[in-house]
Write a protein that binds this DNA or RNA. Structure first.
Lengths: 163, 163
DNA sequence: AAGTAATTGTTGCAATGCAACAAATCGCCC
DNA sequence: GGGCGATTTGTTGCATTGCAACAATTACTT
């Protein structure tokens, strides 16, 4: 478990090939362990999302996966995304109707805050138990039984502010 | 300013006509004060949203506003919604692609948590400075300059749990 | 090898959202 | 009160997002 603040955004000069390979390896291991099938299509969709740290729309994914001639139908992509989300490998960014590969190894139930840069589109991921607690408590104080908190914050990332 | 927890959800037996009238009066006063025009269409859209405490899609609003014959075009509704959101009279529920009238009198910049009941669809609104602070701090710790935090929590409301 | 379950393909369409231009309306100033 | 710029609304048209329903295929089990 790394320090959360500094690892929120991937640095612009990080080893992205390595980052991608690690994520794919993790996905493979996790599916193996759960007896879930990481089929070629699912793998391709995950790989497409891993090409950037920006959220991609389903139709962007179609273009990235359907390189050699026949491109998959939208429903195919959505089904793969459903699978990947159920297994915590991909997150949906609600405020963008888009999807992003998860590069952290947190459990499916973990609480996550997304930091969305309005300038470069990059998305940082902060997982904080404390915030989750606070939100859950506030919800329960209102007599509400919380399930999945969605927290998305728009703004400008450190890198873009520097420029 | 009322206690936040208890006012998160409107009680099922609240005086809804009064609730609606108050919200419309507030909207009128606010637009008056800001020299903004609460035109008939904008008023109708707000009124449509005020008929329930559930978020409505744009096309549901069309059906509710276009009663006597000619129904407004989608773009008309979206424009009215833009206006109402800019003035803090309506919120967008990102995880539902839907809209809800704001029945609290907070300022536009105020931080709000939405509690979305999966069973009855009602949306409770909790405004907590403390949570906003915590989120902003977490964002800043990651070198991120936050703008508008979106927090939406799905779950089951007190009323539905009782049933 | 047969049978069952899971995955993918095909077709089609519903829902969401808005661009671009034209027409109407409002507010203001002379 | 008429003209003028600014705001609002109407019209047309379309891009994007998302998925239902059924058929075909592939994988897994026994």
């Amino acid at each position: 478990m790394r320090g959360m603040a500094l690892s929120a955004f991937p640095t612009p000069d990080h080893d992205h090939d390595r980052c991608t390979a690690d994520a794919l390896a993790h996905a493979e291991a996790l599916c193996e362990a759960r007896a879930q099938r990481l089929t070629p299509i699912r793998r391709q969709v995950l790989a497409a999302l891993l090409t950037s740290h920006r959220p991609l729309g389903a139709y962007e994914i179609i273009e990235l996966t359907g390189q050699e001639g026949a491109r998959p139908a939208p429903i195919t992509i959505y089904r793969a995304l459903d699978f990947l989300m159920e297994n915590g490998l991909v997150h949906r960014i609600e405020s963008r109707n888009a999807f992003i590969a998860c590069i952290h190894n947190h459990s499916t139930a973990d609480f996550v805050v997304f930091l969305i840069c309005e300038r470069c589109g990059a998305v940082g991921e902060v997982s904080s138990g404390a915030i989750g607690e606070t939100l859950s408590n506030a919800a329960r104080a209102a007599g509400f039984a919380p399930k999945a908190p969605v927290v998305e914050i728009s703004g400008i990332c450190a890198h873009c502010r520097g420029a």
